[in-house]
Every structure is written in C-alpha cells, then in structure tokens.
C-alpha cells in the first residue's frame, strides 16, 4: 500500500507551516510499500499530528492523504476498522493501553480483534525477547512507562499490517532495550514486507532508512 500526501497542511498549524519548507507539509510526497522512513523534527512541529492524520484520528487538515487511490478522509466505520486491523499498525506516543487490562490482555485484544495473525504463544515469545515476561499478568496501569512502551510495541506487532507507524516509540527505553526492540520490529516488518514510519527528535540509526524527512 502506498501512502501519498498532496499538499497536506493541518489547519491549526497552517500559518506556521506555510512560511517554511518541510518534507511533508504542503508538498507532494509518497511512502512506497516496504520503505523505512524516518521523520525527524523538533517538538511542536507536528509529528503526532502527522501520525494521527495518517491513522485518521483527526480530520482538520487541508490537502489529501491517499492509501493507494483511496482518500483517507473517506474511510469511515467498518472500512476504517478494516484498515486498522489489516493494513496499518500504530505505536502511539501516549501508548493508549487499557489501564485495567493486564499487559497480556492488552496484547491479546489486538491479536483477536481480527483473524489472528499469530498464535497465542507468540505473545510470550515476543515478551521474552523484550524482557517483559514478568509483567505480562500485571495490570498495564501499574507497569512502568518503559514496560508499557514495550507492551505497546508487542501489541502493534501481533497484528497483520503493511505499514507500522511509530511515534517516538523508544523514548523511555535504554540503548540495550532499544536495539532488542528495533531488531524485533525489523524482523516483523521484513516478514510482512511492510514499511515503517518512525518519528523522533534526533537522528538515529535504529533502522536502515530508505528516506529521512524533516518536518
């Protein structure tokens, strides 16, 4: 699936964005299938806005975002849900776990929301790889932020997708854990032939990027 942007400008940030050049805002660009895309930008330049726009959580923008030939804006209800279940997986900056479900239940929910891509046991395998086996039965609300971040990563990887969108996914992880997570993410993307989009404040070399854009 190709993601295409045509003169995308978020309305709340319009004044500021029109005055400067950007790799995405107010220009034409595409994310081709299987690309690894790094979006680097300082705070307040709209990283999360971009992620939410692609994920169709917000609609307050001018211009167009296309999934192949379909304007994202037109996706509603069950259609949109199908895209979120099959095409696009996301790791939110604010994670968005259910505080009252255990870590395992949070992941399991995403696994069974559609026809499961992986068997149940995969949760344990991935959890072991990221070193969070011991908190799987804990309520997500009482886990540390770093642990929650890894739960959110596994939750994003348990479903089928052709794009993985990550909004500062490693902000609370140490380097050792980051490299474990990055290698798991790379493996899962490669397995699906999927592309990834990662936003961060700084330059990094977690993945071999095909494209680096500044917002």
């Amino acid at each position: 699936m190709t993601i295409t942007f045509r003169h995308l400008v978020p309305i709340p940030l319009k004044e500021r964005f029109l005055q400067r050049s950007s790799g995405i805002w107010n220009t034409d660009t595409s994310f081709l299938p299987g690309e690894y895309i790094k979006i680097k930008a300082p705070s307040g330049t709209g990283k999360t806005t971009l992620v939410h726009t692609i994920y169709q959580l917000r609609n307050d923008y001018e211009g167009t975002v296309l999934f192949d030939d379909t304007p994202v804006r037109k996706l509603k209800g069950d259609e949109l849900a199908a895209v979120r279940q099959q095409k696009i997986s996301v790791i939110f900056q604010d994670l968005r776990l259910f505080a009252n479900l255990t870590a395992r239940e949070n992941i399991e929910l995403k696994r069974v929301l559609q026809e499961p891509y992986y068997p149940k046991e995969m949760i344990d395998t991935m959890a072991a790889e990221l070193g969070i086996t011991h908190i799987l039965e804990q309520r997500a609300g009482v886990c540390s932020y770093g642990e929650q971040q890894r739960v959110a990563i596994i939750r994003a990887l348990i479903q089928p997708f052709s794009w993985l969108i990550m909004d500062e996914p490693f902000s609370h992880l140490d380097n050792d854990n980051i490299s474990k997570a990055a290698s798991l993410i790379h493996r899962e993307c490669a397995k699906r032939g999927a592309g990834l989009v990662i936003t961060d404040l700084e330059h990094d070399s977690h993945f071999t990027y095909t494209k680096e854009l500044n917002l």
Binding site: G77, D78, A81, R84, Q85, K110, L113, Q114
Partner: peptide, 8 residues
C-alpha cells in the same frame, strides 16, 4: 481507535 469495528 485500536481498530475495533463498529460492527464488532
């Protein structure tokens, strides 16, 4: 948000 469909 996570992708549960209204139908489900």
């Amino acid at each position: 948000t996570l992708g549960a469909s209204p139908k489900q």
